[in-house]
């Protein structure tokens, strides 16, 4: 496999928000973002708070709409522009190519932790029985004890919920992974597990873009930093 090929590339990506309820205030957040990520590479988004790191990560997932520019994603051998793709195409790309680990767990209430994680594997057309076993193994690895697997995570601690989210994000083995503060509420032992999981994902050729405020994590896994400058707001 050619490990050099580009998995994700943005060209002139721009994003602004118009807040209609606040008198039409316009916030320019991103402008002219040119980012390139290759297979097996991990890029850390850097910049001061409010510079637009999370906005960029959400735009890369198609969660925020781009106002200008292209977001090229390598999906099943071809490049697709996420910024102009049909919603159905975005859904397909997310299922098989583009994984995202958000900071907060948002799930159907009363579904067990194990089913939530296994369900994410189902999106990749894995056999249900295998998905359950893989999900359980992944939860164990993230130190979620077996007696919690059958419980819905609504009552779990912040760190436990984040680990459910991580298991859900990693089980699909997506070729591209977007990670928003994946270790924010984890202790050192769990942080090391996540570092190892990210390193393994890189080794299998995944392209990773993340926000890592923890310098230890960033130094351990990031190949390069992508600096986001705060947009010069008009006075």
């Amino acid at each position: 496999m050619n490990n050099d090929h580009v998995m994700l590339r943005t060209e002139g990506l721009a994003k602004q928000f118009t807040l209609h309820l606040q008198g039409g205030v316009r916030l320019n957040v991103l402008d002219g973002v040119d980012l390139e990520v290759r297979a097996g590479e991990c890029i850390a988004l850097a910049g001061p708070s409010g510079a637009g790191k999370s906005t960029l990560l959400r735009a890369l997932y198609g969660n925020y709409r781009a106002d200008a520019g292209r977001i090229l994603v390598r999906h099943e051998g071809a490049l697709f522009d996420l910024a102009s793709a049909l919603p159905r195409t975005v859904v397909a790309i997310r299922k098989r190519t583009l994984g995202y680990v958000s900071q907060f767990l948002r799930v159907v209430p009363r579904v067990s932790a194990l089913d939530i994680v296994a369900d994410a594997a189902h999106d990749r057309a894995t056999a249900p029985a295998n998905a359950q076993a893989t999900a359980a193994a992944l939860l164990h690895r993230l130190n979620i004890p077996a007696n919690l697997h059958a419980l819905p995570p609504a009552t779990f601690s912040g760190g436990e919920q984040q680990r459910i989210n991580l298991a859900r994000g990693f089980i699909g083995a997506h070729p591209i992974l977007l990670l928003d503060e994946p270790t924010a509420s984890l202790d050192a032992a769990n942080r090391d597990v996540v570092i190892a999981m990210i390193a393994e994902a890189k080794a299998r050729g995944a392209a990773i873009v993340g926000i890592f405020h923890d310098a230890f994590v960033r130094d351990a896994i990031a190949d390069r930093l992508y600096q986001i400058a705060p947009y010069p707001q008009a006075a």
Partner: peptide
Amino acid sequence: GLTDQVLDDPA
């Protein structure tokens, strides 16, 4: 549009 896009980035 996509549900999460419309709800997280309503225009």
